[in-house]
Nucleic acid binder design. Sequence first.
DNA 1: AAACAAAAGAGAATGATTCTCTTTTAATAA
DNA 2: TTATTAAAAGAGAATCATTCTCTTTTGTTT
Lengths: 139, 139
Amino acid sequence: MKTEEIRRSLVEKGLKVTPQRIAVLEAVTILNNHPSADHIIEYIRKTHPNVSTATVYKVLDALAENGLIKRVKTERDIMRYDAILDKHHHLYCSESDRIEDYSDEQLDQMLEDYFRRKDIPGFSIEDVKLQIIGKFRQT
Amino acid sequence: MKTEEIRRSLVEKGLKVTPQRIAVLEAVTILNNHPSADHIIEYIRKTHPNVSTATVYKVLDALAENGLIKRVKTERDIMRYDAILDKHHHLYCSESDRIEDYSDEQLDQMLEDYFRRKDIPGFSIEDVKLQIIGKFRQT
DNA sequence: AAACAAAAGAGAATGATTCTCTTTTAATAA
DNA sequence: TTATTAAAAGAGAATCATTCTCTTTTGTTT
Ligand SMILES: [Mn+2]
Ligand SMILES: [Mn+2]
Ligand SMILES: [Zn+2]
Ligand SMILES: [Zn+2]
C-alpha cells in the first residue's frame, strides 16, 4: 500500500491524515506477519522516534474501527493486527507466535452452506471463525 | 461432580487432594457458564473465605494442565474455564459475555473429513476450533 | 491567518495474571 | 502415630499489555 493510497483511505473514512496514522498503517502492511502493537512501535520508531505508545494503540483502534485493518486474536494476552482485509483464516503455531494466513473458499462455502441449513435454536450467527492450530514443518 | 468423584480424579492425576482444589473444581462444575477466575474466587470465598487469589489461579492451571478442566478463550483479556470435557464448540454473544456450549457431531465429522482430504502445505493440523459469534434471541 | 475539534504525547493507572517468598499441609515412611 | 518432606497455599508485590487523563500540538476548515 503506497503512501498516497493510505492518505486516500484515511480521508475516505473521514479520519484526519496524520504522520502517525500513515506510519502505523504502513507498518502493519509491511510487517506482514500479523504484528503486535509492540512490533509496530519498534518498527515505527526507527523513522519516527517520538511516536507515543498510547498513540499507536489509539491509531490501531481507529484503523480497526474503520475497517482499514483487522484485529487478530491470539492465545496470548496480546493483540495482533492484519492489513489483509479479504476473508481468510489463520494457521496458529502451537509452539511459537507464528500466525500465517489461510484462505480457503471451498471451506468457507462448505461452512456457509452448513450453517444456512442448520439452525441453532435461540441463536443467530453473525460470524464463524476458524482457528487452525498446529505445527509448521521445517522453517 | 460429587466431592468423592473429584477426590478420585485428583488422585488419578497424581495431584494432592487439597480443600482448595476440591473447591475450585466444584465451583467450575457448578458455575456452569464458563466462569472466569474472578467468578470462581467470588463463589469459593462464600464457603472458603481465606482462599488466595494466586492459589485459585495456580489450581486452575494445574487442573487445566491435567485435563480436568478446559480453558475457554474469549475476545477479552479474561480466561474462562469449562468443566465439560467432551468435544464441543462455543457460541459467543457479540454483545455480552455469555458463552454457551454447542455440540455438533455432524459438523465435527464434516470438518474432520474435509481436513483429512485437504492438505495444508507445510502445516500439520492439531486442532480446529470454531468460534461461533452472534446474538442470543430473547433471554 | 485564525479557530477549533481532533489527535498526539507523557506518564500514571488499570487489571488480569504471575511471581517471589514464607508458611502450611497432604502424603508417605518410620 | 509421629516425623519427614516435597508440594501447595497464602500474602502481597510485580508484570505488562492496554487504557486513561490531562496537556499540548496539529490537521482541517473558514
Ligand atoms: Mn494481562
Ligand atoms: Mn490486561
Ligand atoms: Zn491474516
Ligand atoms: Zn463449554
